[in-house]
């Protein structure tokens, strides 16, 4: 059904993220069984989210020690020199 197809294509992310209602999930799965395009799209979306989640970032990145420099300048005017934490 064209309506189901359009709806499924719009809700692939919701499905992959587990954020569809049980009824919505059944609707999408019923459609995807007979629609190779949507079946492929679900697999691709799952693989994509998995790959992006695996990107992470450079290990052990720490905030620079200067991160509070501007607060210290401003804070000094409000409440005296801040103690270091």
């Amino acid at each position: 059904m064209p309506d189901d197809h359009r709806w499924a294509q719009l809700h692939l992310s919701h499905y992959v993220d587990g954020e569809l209602s049980p009824r919505g999930r059944r609707r999408l799965e019923r459609h995807a069984r007979d629609c190779p395009d949507c079946g492929r799209a679900i697999r691709a979306m799952r693989a994509l989210v998995y790959a992006i989640q695996g990107l992470g970032g450079p290990a052990g990145v720490r905030a620079p020690a200067t991160i509070f420099d501007r607060v210290r300048l401003a804070g000094g005017a409000r409440s005296g020199p801040p103690e270091r934490v």
Binding site: G57, I67, G75
Partner: peptide, 17 residues
């Protein structure tokens, strides 16, 4: 300001990332 630094410092690494 020190309390603010302690409060926000807990999230500083994540925020910078």
């Amino acid at each position: 300001a020190a309390a603010f630094e302690r409060l926000s410092g807990a999230y500083a690494d994540r925020l910078f990332m």
